[in-house]
Design a protein around this nucleic acid. Structure first.
Length: 290
RNA sequence: GGGUGAAUAGCGAAGUGGCCAAACGCGGCUGACUGUAAAUCAGCUCUUAAUUGUUCGGUGGUUCGAAUCCAUCUUCACCCA
């Protein structure tokens, strides 16, 4: 059985995952884009050593901070772990907040091997020109990518050039269903206001636990050009280190960014998954015992 | 007690007679999402079902027309006593 446990930041996913795993003799696989990185512990709210002793945890804390990781790699890693665990007939709980990663891993997203393609030619273009160029190459993305969304436009160009396949054909080739049997997706329901309060408290706790020290020392150690430093709780310290914002402002910004992130997560979950929304663990236990 | 300046939508801040329901920023809300996803991007944000109604500290004027001009009051800031 694969149980997917999603929910916005600050809804208590990790805790629930551990408790649930203990009850059903399950293991936990990380479904979070940033908890895969080493060294980034406090900002990502990675489960503690102690928690990891209680229940086997997979795909946590295993990518060097300075390497870049992406959906494709996660898809492979997740499927690799699942193959192994399902062979052993284990109950698996995938818990995390990165909807895209979880979806790409579980559903039949076609992410082909790609060669490196030099996009520097395209990067010189302005948004409008770039979008026009994209439509010349792959007209089927029209309506799927906003012209201002440079990152996506560039990605779409790269995807087309390296696969030579139109976007609509990639989508068509997929079933839009999980590739595994017996997948149950549960979402932790939380009122926005309570969720926000928890986020604020959680950030304060992180600060007490040494967030400032961890983030600033990692930035000093590795510089700023590190993909993983896009994490909330790290990037906000750039201005702090430059003396452009105070510690208080920085902490407030982290809270705000987390709140905004909560909103985006919920939008994704709501529209991209068929979620059974639950408030308590008992509801999951009841539903999976059927 | 005297003088000067300020008061604009949730906040900051433009606007100094018609093109103003009022730029812009922030915050908030909604949404998109197939290799940067804790990223990136879009829409909405006085009010109404609406080409509706009510606004720019209060009141009263001037004017065909006022957030913008005049008078007065209130509050705040600074300066002089």
């Amino acid at each position: 059985m694969i149980i997917v446990l999603i929910g916005a930041t600050g809804t208590g996913k990790s805790k629930l995952a551990i408790s649930l795993a203990q009850k059903i003799d399950g293991v936990i696989i990380n479904g979070d884009a940033f908890q895969v990185y080493e060294e980034l512990n406090i900002a990502t709210a990675k489960p503690s050593e102690e928690d990891r002793m209680k229940v086997p945890h997979f795909l946590f804390d295993f990518i060097p901070l300075t390497s870049s990781y992406n959906v494709k790699e996660y898809q492979q890693d997740l499927r690799g772990e699942l193959a192994e665990l399902l062979k052993q007939n284990r109950n698996v709980i995938i818990a995390g907040g990165t909807g895209l990663y979880i979806k790409a891993g579980l559903f039949d997203y076609q992410l082909k091997e790609e060669e490196d393609i030099d996009l520097s030619e395209f990067e010189k273009l302005n948004n409008e020109e770039l979008y026009k160029k994209l439509l010349e190459l792959d007209p089927s993305v029209e309506g799927f990518v906003h012209p201002n969304n440079r990152i996506r436009v560039l990605r779409a160009i790269k995807r087309y050039l390296s696969s030579n396949t139109q976007y609509k054909d990639i989508i068509k080739s997929q079933s839009n269903k999980p590739i595994y049997d017996n997948v149950k997706i549960f979402g932790i329901e939380s009122e926005r206001e309570i969720n926000y309060e928890n986020v604020n408290k959680r950030v304060d706790q992180m600060v007490k636990d040494g967030l400032v020290e961890e983030s600033t020392s990692l930035i000093r150690k590795y510089g700023r050009d590190v993909g993983a430093f896009k994490a909330i709780g790290v990037k906000e310290f750039f201005d702090y280190l430059d003396g452009k914002s105070s510690l208080e402002e920085t902490i407030e910004l982290i809270k705000k960014n987390t709140r905004n992130y909560v909103k985006r997560q919920n939008t994704f979950f709501k529209h991209q998954f068929e979620v059974t929304w639950i408030k308590e663990e008992s509801e999951i236990l009841e539903l999976i015992s059927k």
